[in-house]
């Protein structure tokens, strides 16, 4: 579904990504982890071309991301993305947040978009909040609406960029529950997160990044029980110690 081949990105002399190669198969859940500044969010944003990269190639469902002929808006419409800071549109109601891109990008009718949006709102357990504005919701609720908004586009893959990092601890669970359910329904997911509990529960593979490189790319059990690299061992011992 996603193939990342030798992707490199730099700002002047500063290398942000160096020769990253990995892949996400259909229906697979891949967790990308690593210390801050390791380039994991940047790599994720390269997948839907929110960040440009200088070298290498990324292919999403057969479409090359770095290709002048590629219609990027069309590609992005098929790739759902969930942001650390939710990024719901504050001037629109929850319903309008869910329907805007369906109508304007996919060309769905207002009625159809509304039905699809409200279905997904029910799925994330927030039907009662359809007419509210984002500012009236808690962080966890906003993030669940953001997930529903991305799903409303019927994406072939979902990208999550630290979806729980900006949340108060007591709200992390409700968002992870939605994500776990999504993974169990067979959604292809690429998730940048520090939530190792989530990784243990639903990930198929774990990609560990440090200094802009993919240091380890292993099946979940192999990664947690016997990480090969010293850096991954250190990282795991630090975040699993608590």
């Amino acid at each position: 579904m996603i193939v990342v081949e030798a992707v490199s990105k730099w700002y002047g002399d500063l290398a942000v990504l160096s020769g990253c190669t990995t892949a996400v198969a259909r229906g697979e859940v891949v967790v990308v982890c690593g210390p801050s500044g390791s380039g994991k969010s940047t790599l994720l944003k390269c997948v839907n071309a929110l960040e440009p990269f200088q070298q290498g190639q990324i292919t999403v469902d057969g479409t090359r991301v770095k290709d002048r002929a590629t219609n990027l808006p069309r590609l992005r419409a098929r790739v759902g993305m969930v942001f650390q800071h939710f990024e719901l549109f504050p001037h629109l109601s929850v319903t309008d947040n869910l329907t805007l891109a369906q109508r304007k990008v996919l060309g769905r009718s207002g009625e159809e978009a509304r039905r699809r949006g409200l279905d997904l709102l029910a799925r994330v357990g927030l039907s009662a909040h359809a007419e509210k504005f984002p500012g009236q919701l808690s962080g966890g609720q906003q993030q669940r609406v953001a997930i529903a908004r991305a799903l409303a586009m019927d994406p072939v893959v979902m990208l999550f960029d630290e979806p729980t990092s900006a949340l108060d601890p007591e709200m992390v669970g409700e968002v992870l529950d939605v994500m776990v359910e999504l993974a169990r329904d067979g959604m292809t997911m690429m998730v940048v997160t520090h939530e190792m509990g989530f990784a243990r529960k639903v990930a198929d593979r774990v990609v560990f990044m440090d200094g802009g490189e993919i240091v380890e790319d292993a099946a979940k059990d192999a990664f947690f029980s016997r990480p090969r690299s010293e850096r991954a061992q250190q990282f795991l011992s630090k975040i699993l110690a608590h």
Partner: peptide
Amino acid sequence: GQSAAARALGMSYAQTMRLV
């Protein structure tokens, strides 16, 4: 992040500006 979110949903530059 607002324009990033709009573009991630597949909106063009014009739509991102006009709608978001």
